[in-house]
Design a protein around this nucleic acid. Structure first.
Length: 580
RNA sequence: CGGGAUGUGGCUCAGCUUGGUAGAGCACUGCGUUCGGGACGCAGGGGUCGGAGGUUCAAAUCCUCUCAUCCCGACCA
């Protein structure tokens, strides 16, 4: 492509709307433009990067035995009512009516549609397993879209679904996809980890997230420094070592009420008593489909709501507003404690080892000092309820955990029979018995993958695209358009790149050299080939790799074989995938 | 939905406190000079100051409402 003919509006200044690096660079490099919050147009340069990621995804999915389909984006409400997600999915589901006042939604995901398709097509175990995928625009009316393509409302997603005869076969499909995903993100040139995750609204019982490590990521992941254990902090466990030494030191017979005016937070209370927050217990009220409950954790820890939800066996969980707690339970938020409450109390496993502790008195303006586990309050539900901290012990080995930030670019789930039972996607097995298919689902955020790649591959001058997803592999810079010799040679070189199938951006604009260098850096083409009058006189072209910030190499004009072998090498590295 | 902030030529922003001729840089058009890391000169085009209402002789500026966008918390590829 000739730069002079391409719609590639690079920006010198950073648009005010962009905060994170990838968003800024994607705007500056003329890849995307915002239409509305979380809704973006893809410009040619950006679309090329997306298509490259899609290409890798398709190649690896097909190699893994999946087949591409394309399902409708607009879906009838009936299907969602059948799966009972019409109500469950909430406001993220964009709903609308057609001219006959029938309810529809714009698909945020396609379990219903694919299951509906399959239930009409598959009758026999002989037709299984089956793995279908698509690459398509999704819409989720996110509460807070942000960071450009990182969390858009409209976004391009690869979603795939597997159908198997039983759980064992489904596990094979899952592992097959896990390997395919590993190849995909490796080929995209990303530094990522596959981590254990919560399965969220999609449901099911087993899932992994593929997380690209980046400080700007929205997710926190805990991983072991020694073994390969890695999990989203939402899900992460740590091995508990109770410290018995503190549990016996009891100096009083019963807790003592102390007036603590205006001490409604742990920090206030810690300052008031001049103790460490770890000596205070944090008591919180949660409401779920099973009613109210109190959750008690050490004052220096954060409650992990997913663990609470799991411990309760609840379908949903939320923190009720203080007014509701006051009205319905007659408890003062800010002065809550586990002693004497009538609702179920869940206690974090560390609490019994805290010895004498301070807790709320359930009376406005008062706390209790010298409260003891066992003597003053008890619960038969003592479990792990807090978020892991860095430095805690790995649940699998004797290593410790570290916390990193990351961007979730892929997520794979074992769904079980959740959808196939609801939608009656059944088949006859070898015994002639009717069974529900066992499903899995597998997503990749295509735009987010591009954003994550930029997040991980940039420097102060711009993007440093990994070779595989770079829209152009090479930037060819003609520094002296007016020099016939130089231009003639550049034109020849340009044609040669095209002949060899190496995608090239030929900067033939009537611009000063500085502009061309700046744009080449910003746009991040992996290889930069420069020819100017000076070089031509000396009989050389200059070649520089963008990513390594390498030295400029000089190749003779009359022998470009070293240049071509450089590309052969880059191409080979790109597609060399480690297979088990 | 809470909390914080911002809306002024295509982009980045000043002007607002203390009401009185809408400004700068970049970008754009023309001409000339430049030409190896975002050049310079001259001459141009382009703005209902997010929108509505109000106060006032007079509103970008003060007041009310509204819309949009961004950032911090619950959702997720």
């Amino acid at each position: 492509m000739r730069f002079s003919k391409m719609h590639l509006p690079t920006l010198k200044e950073v648009p005010a709307e962009a905060e994170v690096v990838s968003h800024r660079l994607m705007l500056r490099a003329g890849m995307i433009r915002r239409l509305a919050a979380g809704i973006y147009s893809y410009l040619p340069f950006g679309l090329m990067a997306l298509r490259n990621v899609e290409g890798i995804v398709r190649h690896e999915m097909n190699r893994a035995g999946a087949q591409e389909v394309l399902l409708p984006a607009v879906q009838p409400a009936e299907l969602w009512q059948e799966s009972e997600r019409w109500d469950f999915y909430g406001k993220e589901l964009l709903r609308f009516k057609d001219r006959h006042q029938r309810n529809f939604c714009f698909g945020p995901t396609h379990e219903e549609v694919i299951t509906d398709l399959i239930r009409h097509e598959i009758r026999s175990y002989r037709q299984l397993p089956l793995n279908l995928y698509q690459v398509q625009t999704k819409f989720r009316d996110e509460i807070r879209p942000r960071f450009g393509l990182m969390r858009g409302r409209e976004f391009i997603m690869k979603d795939g679904y597997s159908f198997d005869v039983d759980d064992a076969a489904s596990t094979l499909s899952y592992q097959n996809m896990r390997e395919a995903y590993t190849r995909i993100f490796t080929r995209c040139g990303l530094n990522f980890r596959a981590v254990e995750a919560d399965s969220g609204a999609i449901g099911g019982n087993f899932s992994h997230e593929f997380v690209v490590l980046a400080d700007s990521g929205e997710d926190a992941i805990a991983s072991c420094t020694k073994c390969d254990y890695a999990a989203n902090v939402e899900k992460a466990q740590s091995r508990f070592v109770g410290d018995e030494t503190t549990s016996s030191a009891v100096s009083t017979d019963s807790p003592e009420a102390v007036a603590t005016p205006n001490c409604e937070s742990i920090d206030d209370v810690a300052a008031f008593f001049k103790v460490d927050p770890a000596a205070i217990i944090k008591s919180m009220i949660f409401e779920s489909d099973l009613g109210f409950c109190m959750v008690v954790v050490p004052g220096d820890r954060e409650v992990n709501e997913l663990k609470v939800k799991a411990a309760l066996g609840a379908n949903w969980l939320e923190v009720p507003p203080p007014a509701r707690i006051a009205d319905e339970l007659d408890l003062p938020v800010g002065y809550l404690g586990p002693i004497g409450v009538e609702i179920p109390v869940l206690v974090d496993r560390q609490v019994p080892y805290m010895g004498e502790m301070i807790c709320g008195a359930n009376r406005h303006g008062y706390h209790l000092r010298g409260a003891c586990w066992g003597r003053d309050f008890k619960s038969d539900r003592v479990v792990d309820l807090v978020q892991v901290h860095a430095g805690e012990f790995c649940p699998r080995c004797d290593g410790s955990l570290q916390i990193d930030r990351g961007i979730e670019v892929g997520h794979i789930f074992k769904l079980g029979t959740k959808y196939s039972e609801k939608l009656k996607a059944t088949f006859l097995d070898q015994d002639g018995k009717e069974k529900a298919m066992v499903m899995g689902c597998y997503g990749i955020g295509v735009g987010r993958t591009v954003a994550a790649a930029i997040e991980q591959n940039h420097d102060e001058n711009g993007i440093t695209f990994p070779y595989a997803i770079a829209p152009f592999k090479v930037a060819l810079l003609n520094l002296d358009l007016k020099s016939e010799d130089v231009t003639l040679f550049c034109e020849k070189l340009y044609q040669e790149f095209l002949n060899r199938g190496i995608s090239v951006l030929y900067d033939d604009r009537n611009e000063r050299p500085g502009v061309k260098f700046k744009d080449a850096d910003l746009l991040g083409m992996p290889v930069r080939v420069t020819l100017g009058r000076k070089g031509f006189k000396r009989g050389i072209i200059e070649v520089k790799l963008r990513q390594a910030d390498a030295e400029v190499q000089e190749f003779p004009l009359d022998n470009l074989e070293p240049l071509w072998s450089l590309f052969t090498e880059l191409q080979a590295n790109d597609s060399r995938i480690t297979l088990k």
